[in-house]
Design a protein around this nucleic acid. Structure first.
Length: 585
RNA sequence: GACUUGGUAGCUCAGCUGGAUAGAGCAACGGCCUUCUAAGCCGUCGGUCAGGAGUUCGAAUCUCCUCCGAGUCGCCA
């Protein structure tokens, strides 16, 4: 281990400097204790809760207990070990508080590292190599044709989009797949409804909304006429088998729906590599069914074909008693197709909590078939969009269209601009970027698996932990940095950055890469969202008490370096979340 | 009923591989703009971490039980 080598901490850039120090410290202490006492302990090196307590902290209780020695003796051993280790040059002070051995970092060394690291990488600061050479497929958005793009699909869309960005930042090759819900019994229903009580001219005028009306009406009528459901199933089966009349209608419905979705994707700035939906796999299911049959996994039950999954899970229904296929059959076909086409190392499905069982079944079936996909596919579940504590549904006609939500948010941000900065140019365009980003951030800031109460008022509130707060922070910095020319020239006063408020910011900056990796690995954009809020808050606090544009040139330049780093991370982070960056608001 | 998931400040939520005095934002109240964007900053108020038991030097975090909410449980997706 060559701690003196300046490149030591750049190794693969897997860990930032402080994390790296923590890990080395842990290893050194564990080794010393193992060698001296022949006792193996797990030593924790963490950050203390309060900043007066230093930068690193080692709880000594467990070690003392394992060694059966008093705390003070163990403290002494730790102190000696650290003092004689090459790490000591990164530390400036040691404090024993209660049962904790705390360490203050040598801030100058850390600051130099962070600032140099940043200057060397700039545009790809925070970029990681953990995904190099690996491909990840992400199945997200996947709206159901002939249904409006609801706020329910919003979650899948923006979580998936953000995960794609995060994974790319970590070096993965990402394949973004919009697995359109363009097949299934619902099409039998819509076609039935269209043929019995639809109106072509109305649909041409306002396609999506009319199709939704038909769908809703079908369900209302079917309540008292259960034979309509049988008829819809029959129609779908014929569609599956290529009935030309139904296929034409299907094509039409699909086309107009997709045109509608594209408008939303444009607003959200979301894109896909593939729009192969369920229908795409219509001719790719038979080989799967054959293989299941050959492997003796398929059996008949009440006229349907199922795969028995044992005690823990209900059986997977592969083929209905009328011979038509189901969602899971098409998903299996899609899985095999994606593996063959993209050779993914992971395939993520950004789909709601309620489909948990479905993905458990897919894993179980593929495992029974002898494939390792159960380890490669991952259900990125997310919570329901609730309204007044209840799930929103198109069947009951309670529809909240995403388009309306976005418009409302944009409109409100325009109202705010007129209030706060009426002279601003391009108000309309900027208000759209603020409004859409507010909706995106509002969704991503909470842990995805939890339910989500849909509240327009909270969403467009532009105070506190919101998208506009992040944008506003970036804008404030932009207005300083753009006032006169600035570049990273390294002409700075490191001592100044060692002041408490500056060093706090430096430490957070140094955690950016690790935060991005953690967000990507845990598929949790909320981790990054919380981090950005924290960074913005630290900056705003700093901004409130420090003047940046000062007479002293080196002081001014030093502060600008700090601001430029903060701004880069805010902008890069917002982009990763799928928000838009602006320089005036 | 079984399985999954959640219950932390009035509201929205962090924190959960056990660590120090449980944190933010909103709301309420009080300050701060002749000086880099006040969509901001500073401060005050606010908690039996659903309840109980257990493990531990130490529990919001782990285990068990109870209560409450949500989701899922073959011919929808």
């Amino acid at each position: 281990m060559d701690f003196k080598n300046p490149n030591f901490f750049y190794e693969k850039r897997v860990l930032n400097m402080i994390e790296s120090i923590k890990l080395k410290l842990k290893n050194i202490l564990e080794n010393v204790i193992l060698n001296r006492f022949d006792v193996s302990v797990n030593i924790i090196v963490e950050a203390p809760k309060r900043k007066e307590q230093g930068d690193l902290s080692i709880p000594v209780f467990t070690i003392a207990k394992a060694l059966q020695k008093p705390l003070s003796d163990v403290m002494k051993i730790i102190n000696e070990t650290i003092e004689t280790s090459p790490l000591s040059s990164f530390f400036s002070d040691y404090l024993a508080i209660g049962g904790f051995f705390n360490i203050k970092l040598n801030s100058i060394a850390i600051i130099k590292f962070v600032v140099d690291d940043f200057a060397n990488h700039q545009k790809d600061y925070g970029h990681s190599l953990i995904g190099e050479g690996k491909t990840v497929c992400i199945d997200y958005s996947s709206p159901n044709i002939a249904k409006p793009f609801s706020v329910g699909h919003l979650r899948s869309t923006i979580i998936g989009h953000s995960l794609g960005n995060l994974l790319e930042k970590c070096g993965y090759k990402v394949v973004r797949i919009n697995h359109l819900g363009d097949f299934g019994t619902q099409f039998g229903k819509i076609i039935y409804a269209y043929q019995h009580f639809g109106d072509e001219t109305l649909i041409r005028k306002d396609p999506i909304n009319e199709l939704v009306k038909l769908y809703v009406e079908f369900h209302e009528r079917a309540k008292n006429n259960p034979e309509m459901d049988d008829e819809a199933r029959r129609i779908f089966k014929e569609l599956e088998q290529g009935n030309p009349e139904y296929t034409n209608l299907w094509n039409w419905f699909r086309k107009v729906s997709l045109e509608d979705y594209m408008k939303v994707y444009e607003k959200l700035n979301v894109h896909f590599d593939s729009y192969n939906g369920e229908a795409f796999y219509n001719d790719k299911m038979q080989p799967i069914i054959d293989e299941l049959s050959e492997k003796g996994l398929l059996k008949e039950d009440e006229g349907a074909m199922i795969v028995d999954l044992g005690e823990e899970m209900p059986p997977a229904l592969i083929q209905k008693s009328d011979g038509s296929t189901l969602y899971i059959t098409r998903d299996l076909a899609a899985l095999f197709y994606r593996k063959k086409t993209y050779n993914f190392s992971k395939c993520l499905y950004v789909v709601g909590n309620e489909q948990k069982l479905h993905f458990e079944q897919i894993k179980a079936v593929s495992k029974l078939m002898g494939y390792p996909y159960d380890k490669e596919i991952e259900h990125i579940n997310f919570g329901l969009v609730l309204q007044d504590g209840k799930k929103m549904s198109t069947r009951k006609g309670k529809i909240v269209k995403l388009d309306d939500v976005l418009d409302e948010a944009c409109h409100l941000s325009l109202v705010y601009i007129n209030e706060k900065n009426p002279e601003l140019e391009n108000k309309k365009l900027i208000s759209q970027k603020i409004g859409v980003s507010a909706v995106v951030f509002n969704d991503l800031k909470n842990y995805r698996a939890n339910d989500f109460e849909f509240n327009l008022e909270d969403m467009v509130r532009f105070e506190g932990q919101t998208g506009p707060y992040l944008q506003y922070t970036s804008v404030r910095i932009a207005s300083i940095l753009n006032a006169e020319s600035f570049e990273f020239n390294g002409n700075i006063d490191y001592m100044r950055l060692a002041n408490e408020s500056e060093f706090e910011i430096i430490k957070v900056i140094s955690q950016y890469q690790m935060t991005v990796e953690k967000s990507a690995i845990e598929s949790s954009p909320s981790i990054l969202a919380k981090y950005l809020l924290n960074l913005a808050s630290l900056f705003n606090s700093y901004y409130g008490k420090e003047k940046i544009i000062v007479e002293n040139l080196i002081e001014k330049n030093t502060k600008k370096h700090l601001l430029a780093m903060v701004k880069y991370i805010l902008d890069d982070g917002m982009t990763l979340l799928g928000m838009q960056v602006i320089d005036k608001m």
